[in-house]
Design a protein around this nucleic acid. Structure first.
Lengths: 343, 343
DNA sequence: AGCCGCTGGTGAACCGGTAAAGCTCCGATT
DNA sequence: AATCGGAGCTTTACCGGTTCACCAGCGGCT
């Protein structure tokens, strides 16, 4: 019927129900001031006309928005590959949907672009708040966005996230657990294939790894920083395994690189886990579909996302609940870790 | 400085530049009617005050929105696992970003919820148009959303997408190519592990598969419909391999299931590709990080997404360019396919 | 009878932009 | 000298809601 016709507004509904715009507004927002009878008439009219309030107009006058922003600053192909983000996003979405809120997503090339985007979003009143991820050491977003006064929740260690309420996992403890586990299996040379050096959590893990190795009296450990993708993961693995003092165990900073590493090991004639133990991070289904299955430091990424969304709502509503630590990734032993050869 | 203070509006900028609101609006929209000198003053004022136009107010009066919607109706954990969507989304994003447009994303549980969401989005003038995916046979969204008159682009075969401009790949030809390739390698019993039966493209592939098998005179083929996830992919593979007339080659409808299938094969003592050939779909990095690497029907999902976004822009701007077929997935042979045993 | 307070509304102002009509110079045209 | 036209702004009326001040009834109380 309606075709592409003129869209129906609150005025039409008001006219049809025989009341004023104000009454319709009150009814639709479940505010007192309209009798049950008129409320019904209004809803009936709205239903008949197929009307829904214009979010645009509403947020202009009420200054409320039901959208939160998320900008991701990673190469697109990596995002597609890494299960982490989609899982994380779906966790966020779950909570947002409960509050009939949507997620505005944007991929950006660099942090400057991200800062500009948030300014545009926030000043343009397009979002109620934002989720910030992938913090660097001395992240330029912290001063820039603090100045905006935009509600935001930061995913990362409080040391990195400045004034923003943070949600994070205790990566240092998790790394320590990983190394201890491998040491307990008799491994004396444990290497690590980490993420980009400029990422805050990479630095945290790198230090924790080194500390734990020293603490346990293991041999000096080799750590390689990579771009998080499978190619670099493979190359790093190859480098490690070609060295004279090659490790008997390797810890990876995500699951992609671990899977790639397993491939390299096989290709080079090493048997996992007999010759070489591999331990992944950010456990996803990926770790379960390979052969052998990958042991991993697993955590509930979906739940992580949900928690982030919940904290963001608090911040938007002016409730400062401070930071939240979500459960530390915990060891899930599977088929890729075993006692060190000859141990 | 500004803290959470009152947000600056066009009026403040106008005052500071010593002009009227209208002039500021003209300047910011690059419309004629302001001299170069004033334009500069206006921009300077805006910069000093840190002002950006309110997208909300703008879209209320101009009826233009710079947001497009995408609702995904799949279990969250599957989305996280399957590289397809993130890759697809990043393709969309690439084109959107060029036009400084953002993507509104929402995960929904069922098609009714999706329909309701689109009504809300469209009637609420929150989006300029939408991207529809995962079409069913006789999809309920077609009649419901057609009535809305919302600009939308459909991802799927035109037979399924009703009046919406479609962007699709020729799955039938691709399936045929896959089967022909395996037949050429001497395989006589080729099975297929497909996606959910109610998905339109599953039906198309199923029929094309059966047709091709018949046409080539291969043995009657077994096809199993699954939920697209790795568990069902593994189970289907197990079922197929346990049968007396087990296939010597299996085609999968996505890469996740293929990887899971490779795992099952190994676990059951079959060597890929000597005993069994595997062929994946939706080739992603995933196929390259396993051992052996997976042969796949690959297509450029990123580009697919980009094309979808481009068509959506056309539709939104009233340019009906009709449907667009993007390149047919093509065979990328890797390590998981080989001549049939004994062939 | 007069006044109060409550319920169920109404009307107008406002949110921050855009768009179109109107007004003012100023140089060129007739 | 009078007219025209166009560049460069200003004015004003929206867009579609929300919000708030105000008001009409009406029953109850003194």
């Amino acid at each position: 019927m309606s075709g592409t016709g003129e869209r129906v507004t609150i005025k039409d509904v008001a006219a049809r129900a025989g009341v004023s715009k104000g009454a319709v507004s009150l009814a639709f927002n479940h505010k007192p001031g309209v009798s049950e009878a008129t409320r019904e008439r209004i809803f009936a009219a709205a239903r008949e006309l197929g009307w829904a309030p214009s979010a645009t107009a509403r947020s202009l006058s009420s200054k409320r928005v039901d959208i939160v922003g998320l900008a991701l600053c990673r190469p697109a192909r990596l995002l597609g590959l890494e299960p982490f983000y989609m899982d994380f996003i779906s966790g966020i979405e779950g909570v947002l949907a409960e509050r009939s809120c949507s997620l505005l997503l944007r991929l950006v090339r660099d942090l400057d672009e991200e800062i500009a985007l948030h300014q545009e979003w926030w000043r343009g009143r397009m979002i109620a708040g934002a989720i910030l991820v992938d913090f660097r050491e001395d992240d330029p977003r912290v001063p820039a966005l603090r100045r905006l006064g935009m509600p935001a929740v930061a995913v990362g260690h409080p040391r990195l996230t400045g004034p923003f309420p943070a949600v994070w996992t205790d990566d240092a403890s998790a790394v320590a657990e990983a190394v201890r586990y491998l040491a307990a299996l008799g491994h004396r040379r444990v290497a690590r294939v980490g993420g980009p050096a400029d990422l805050g959590h990479s630095a945290i893990r790198t230090r924790a790894f080194a500390d734990t190795v020293r603490e346990l009296g293991l041999e000096e450990a080799r750590q390689i920083a990579t771009g998080f993708d499978e190619k670099e993961g493979a190359r790093a693995t190859r480098t490690l395994l070609l060295a004279a003092d090659r490790p008997t165990a390797i810890v990876y900073d995500n699951d992609i690189m671990a899977v790639a590493g397993a491939g390299v090991a096989a290709e080079m004639g090493f048997t996992v886990p007999d010759d070489l133990s591999l331990l992944a991070w950010d456990d996803s289904q990926l770790c379960r579909i390979t052969h052998p299955t990958l042991s991993a430091m697993s955590h509930d990424v979906h739940h992580f996302g949900a928690e982030v969304a919940r904290v963001l709502f608090d911040v938007v509503n002016g409730v400062d609940t401070g930071g939240h630590q979500v459960p530390t990734p915990s060891l899930t032993p599977r088929g890729s870790t075993a006692p060190a050869p000859g141990a």
